[in-house]
Simulated scan of single mutants.
Amino acid sequence: MRLGLSTPVVVQTPGVASAWENGAGIDDVVRIAKVADELGFDYLTCSEHVAVPADQGAGRGFVYWDPVATLAFLAAHTSGIRLATSIVVLGYHHPLEIAKTYGTLDLISGGRVVLGVGVGSIEAEFAMLGSSWPDRGARADDAIRALRTSLSDPRPSYDGQFYRFSDVIVEPCAVQPHLPIWVGGRTPRSLRRAVQLCDGWMPFGLGGRALTEMLASVDIPDGFDVVLGPGPLDPLGDPARTERRLRGLRDVGATIINCSITAESVGHYCDQLAALRALADTIEQEDA
């Protein structure tokens, strides 16, 4: 059973983040990253918001560490765990900027980047950054196509609806011949975008029935990742519920489970990671 980690501290969403995360720092995140790496977790995440409007913090929170700086630092302290953006907002960047930034991260991490992308959901943030809001979906599709041609090619060219480039050199580029791109979102369109253009889908805020219906509506390609989150888990305090959530998401169609964990301290968090890994391994052995 593949388990990814929705990294604590670097994003603090109300109702999800534990109290200890407020005031925690990079040393705590590194400690968790090392433990997750040693336990065989699939990836760590970091999200992107440049500036959250002050009137939207109640639902989203305000803490969003920069994904490039954060994941690059964690790359230096880990060896095998992948580094996933969850997500990069496509409308905030030119595709070549993303290709250079995350291609460099892929190089220095030894080919461990997963590029999670999305169309964005805060109109005020788009306006502040001078990005186009009404056509963000079409621009995102074009950006993904441009990225697919650019991430692993030092001499990319592309001629699309919104982005066009040729006769350029982008060095360094990604060392993975096919760097995985996952799409975030919660709509049927986000799933279609993922299936048609990318390598995985990582939805949020959807119940089991909605997920089942949406996944049944498309033909899932071979090797396509469905990355589902069970909500905050407490494997030490409530292992039975944790097991039900893991099994339930696997039965819905998850190929990777994106885990967030409740804890009282960084030490407790690391203990929870070990308990979660052991529980997932037990489930896998029982069902083998």
Results as ranks from 00 to 15, higher is better:
89 V>H: 01
39 L>G: 10
93 H>F: 14
218 V>G: 04
168 V>D: 05
130 G>T: 06
22 N>I: 13
43 Y>H: 15
202 M>A: 15
129 L>Y: 10
228 L>E: 10
140 A>P: 04
12 Q>T: 03
170 V>N: 13
79 S>H: 14
103 G>K: 01
11 V>H: 14
154 P>D: 05
31 R>P: 00
228 L>D: 09
217 S>Y: 10
5 L>T: 05
238 D>K: 05
35 V>Y: 01
66 D>E: 15
159 D>W: 05
147 L>K: 04
162 F>V: 04
217 S>V: 05
1 M>S: 12
205 G>R: 13
170 V>M: 12
99 A>K: 01
201 W>L: 06
131 S>W: 05
284 E>Q: 14
205 G>P: 00
230 P>A: 09
245 R>M: 13
266 V>A: 15
75 A>Y: 03
35 V>S: 11
284 E>C: 08
160 G>W: 06
111 G>P: 09
232 P>Y: 03
168 V>F: 10
185 G>H: 04
246 L>I: 15
250 R>I: 02
48 E>H: 09
196 Q>M: 12
279 L>V: 07
257 I>Y: 00
254 A>Y: 06
29 V>E: 01
252 V>E: 03
88 V>D: 01
78 T>M: 05
75 A>L: 05
181 I>H: 08
186 R>D: 14
237 G>Q: 05
226 V>P: 01
150 S>A: 15
120 G>S: 07
120 G>P: 03
261 I>L: 15
57 G>K: 11
288 A>Y: 07
95 P>Q: 02
97 E>T: 14
176 Q>F: 09
93 H>T: 00
262 T>F: 02
161 Q>E: 15
64 Y>W: 14
220 I>M: 13
141 D>V: 04
9 V>S: 00
210 A>S: 13
22 N>R: 15
49 H>W: 08
151 L>A: 03
61 G>Q: 03
40 G>P: 11
288 A>I: 11
141 D>N: 15
238 D>F: 09
43 Y>W: 14
43 Y>I: 00
130 G>E: 02
149 T>R: 13
135 D>Y: 08
52 V>F: 10
269 Y>P: 05
7 T>V: 06
93 H>M: 00
204 F>M: 10
176 Q>P: 06
96 L>Q: 08
115 L>C: 11
192 R>I: 08
158 Y>P: 04
211 L>S: 01
123 E>W: 07
194 A>C: 10
122 I>M: 14
71 L>C: 10
226 V>D: 03
99 A>V: 04
6 S>M: 12
105 L>P: 02
38 E>M: 08
120 G>V: 00
216 A>Y: 08
262 T>N: 12
183 V>E: 00
174 A>N: 01
149 T>F: 02
152 S>I: 02
288 A>V: 13
253 G>K: 07
3 L>S: 03
26 I>W: 09
72 A>D: 01
187 T>C: 03
211 L>K: 03
1 M>L: 13
90 L>C: 14
256 I>G: 00
97 E>Y: 11
134 P>S: 11
86 S>N: 15
13 T>Y: 00
283 I>T: 07
286 E>R: 15
276 L>T: 10
192 R>Q: 14
230 P>R: 08
243 E>C: 07
222 D>G: 13
194 A>S: 12
227 V>G: 01
219 D>P: 00
35 V>N: 02
56 Q>F: 11
245 R>T: 01
12 Q>P: 10
72 A>H: 01
85 T>W: 06
247 R>E: 13
